[in-house]
Amino acid sequence: MTVAELKKMARQIRRDIIEMTHAAGSGHPGGSLSATDFVTALYFHKLRHHPDDPCWEGRDRVIFSKGHVAPVLYAALARSGYFPCAEYASLRQYGANLQGHPCNCTPGVEVGTGSLGQGLSVIVGMALAAKLDGRDNLFYCVNGDGEMQEGQIWEALMAAGHFKLDRVLTFIDYNGLQIDGEVEKVMGIAPLADKLRAFRWHVAEVDGHDMQSLVDVLDEFPRGDGRPVAIIGHTIKGKGVSFMENQAGWHGKAPNDEEYAKAMAELAGED
């Protein structure tokens, strides 16, 4: 896809997120919308996968360590062809593949996540296995900024640096907000880039909504220098829907009918 096409797809995915969470009556639109541009660039520009063969051995692996942004993951999977978009209506319903948080019952989901801080370790273990066997898969993780408060994240960062896993890339969705408010007020994580570098990671700071920058930084991966890559994506929680932007309250709340109509109108059109 061209950058213009990626932008168009990101807009479609944002509409899907609104549609899904509105239909479910609950869910996490805020962080889904902030991670959308990276997730779009990853799935529609970079990732090697065969959606019609989800267990293809040669696929790159992706884990959403911040599992609550399941809506953006499900939209990326459906738009990639893992399952029909018609399944959106089943999000969070009894018996559905689309559980409230990701479960490996869904095609394209490697492992269940939702208890924060755990997914990065799993990606590190996958990359370690691939290194042991000399396989060339690439390993991607999506982390939240609030999630960086979990101790296990720093254990995983330490291990990835220690084992020189330069085929690991994590995107840190740095939207600055968590449930209880501003990340820096709840439990500060700054200076994040310095901390990551001290843990032997290569760090790229980008505007997490600038598609060209996201494509460029993904194109530079893997670097082959023994350092895993962290992209700190400076983002806006709720990006694309004016009344959700920068509002911590939209972390885990679904739009009602009126809000749905307003959000869809704002997200209408191509870009």
Binding site: S121, G125, M126, L128, A129, L132, E155
Partner: peptide
């Protein structure tokens, strides 16, 4: 030696890494 990994004193990450290993067929 190549199939042994010391996770250091970090049990939570050790379990996560093992989970990742199992997903790759180990």
């Amino acid at each position: 030696p190549t199939r042994f990994f010391d996770a250091g004193i970090a049990e939570q990450n050790m379990l996560g890494m093992a989970a990742g290993m199992s997903l790759m067929g180990k």
